[in-house]
C-alpha cells in the first residue's frame, strides 16, 4: 500500500531531472501520473515506461507550459487522461542561463517575460485550470518547485529569481484560498541539484571545467543535491503525514 494510492498527479517538466524523480516517486507511492514534457519525447517515454513497470498509469503530454493555450490544453488533456487531477506539481522551468544570466540593468523585457511565463504564468494557468476540479477530490495538493534563488536573489539571477518569487506568491495566496477545500499548497525550493539544467548553469558561470560533479566535495554533506532529495519532500507534502501542513516552504539545499 503506497501513501499516494488512488491519487492522480500532473508533473510539469516531468521527463528529466527533478521532474523525472518526482514522477518516479509519486508513482512508487501509488499515484497515476501525467508526465508533461516540452522537447524530449524519448525521455518522457522512458520515464512513462518506468511508471508502468511500477503498476501505475502513465500518460505523456507534450506542452510548452509557458504558452497559455498550451498550458490550458495540458490541463484539459490531463483530466481527460486520468479522470481528474488531485496533485499538481509545478516543476517545469528554465534557468537564468537560458537567457544568458543578464544583470537586471541588462535584461531585456523579452528575457524577463520568458522567465515569468515559464514559472509564474504557467503555474497560475495550471492552478486556474485544475484547482476547480481539484476541489471535488477528497484531498488536493499543489506543490511549486521554486529555488533558493527566491531567497538569496543572487546577482545575474534577477529575472529568474523574480519569476520564482512570483510563483511562490501564487502558492502562499492559493494556500489561503483553498484550505477550506482541503487543498494543500506548499513550496519546495531546491538548491544546487545534479541535473542538466544545473550543469548548464555552473559551466556558464565558469565554476567547473567539464562536470557539475567537480563541485560535489565542497557541497553540503559532501555531495550535490539529487533529484530524489526534491522528490522526497514532495512525496511527504502530498501524504497523510503532512495532512496538517499547508502554506509551507522547504528549502532542499543542505543549507
Amino acid at each position: 500500500m503506497g501513501e499516494l494510492d488512488g491519487r492522480k498527479a500532473l508533473v510539469t517538466g516531468g521527463s528529466r531531472g527533478i521532474g523525472r524523480a518526482i514522477v518516479y516517486r509519486l508513482a512508487s507511492e501509488g499515484a497515476d501520473v501525467v508526465i508533461n514534457y516540452h522537447s524530449n519525447q524519448k525521455a518522457a517515454e522512458e520515464i512513462a515506461s518506468e511508471v508502468i513497470k511500477l503498476g501505475r498509469k502513465a500518460e505523456i503530454i507534450m506542452a510548452d507550459v509557458s504558452d497559455q493555450s498550451e498550458a490550458e490544453r495540458l490541463a484539459t488533456e490531463s483530466i481527460a487522461a486520468l479522470g481528474n487531477i488531485d496533485i499538481l506539481v509545478n516543476n517545469a522551468g528554465i534557468g537564468a542561463t537560458a537567457v544568458g544570466r543578464p544583470n537586471v540593468a541588462t535584461a531585456t523585457p523579452d528575457d524577463f517575460y520568458r522567465l515569468m511565463a515559464a514559472h509564474a504564468f504557467a503555474s497560475h494557468d495550471l492552478c486556474r485550470m485544475l484547482v476547480p476540479q481539484m476541489r471535488e477530490s477528497t484531498r488536493g495538493d499543489v506543490v511549486m518547485i521554486s529555488s533558493i534563488a527566491a531567497q538569496s536573489f543572487g546577482p545575474t539571477g534577477g529575472t529568474y529569481s523574480a519569476a520564482k518569487a512570483a510563483m511562490e506568491a501564487v502558492a502562499y495566496t492559493l494556500a489561503k484560498e483553498e484550505r477550506a477545500n482541503n487543498i494543500h499548497v506548499n513550496i519546495v525550493a531546491p538548491g544546487l541539484i545534479e541535473t542538466d539544467m544545473a550543469e548548464d548553469m555552473v559551466k556558464f558561470q565558469g565554476r567547473v571545467k567539464d562536470s557539475i560533479n567537480e563541485l560535489a566535495d565542497d557541497s553540503p554533506f559532501g555531495r550535490l543535491g539529487y533529484p530524489e532529495d526534491i522528490a522526497g519532500s514532495v512525496a511527504f507534502l502530498c501524504s497523510e503525514r503532512a495532512s496538517y501542513i499547508t502554506n509551507q516552504r522547504i528549502t532542499v539545499a543542505g543549507s
Binding site: 494556500a175 489561503k176 484550505r179 538548491g191 553540503p220 554533506f221 543535491g225 539529487y226 532529495d229 522526497g232 519532500s233 512525496a235 511527504f236 496538517y244 501542513i245 499547508t246 502554506n247 509551507q248 522547504i250 528549502t251 532542499v252 539545499a253 543542505g254 543549507s255
Partner: peptide
C-alpha cells in the same frame, strides 16, 4: 533519508 539534504529549515505544522 527523504530529508537528508534538508537542514536549517522550519516547518510550521498548524494547518497554515
Amino acid at each position: 533519508e527523504d530529508a537528508a539534504y534538508v537542514t536549517g529549515q522550519r516547518l510550521y505544522v498548524n494547518g497554515g
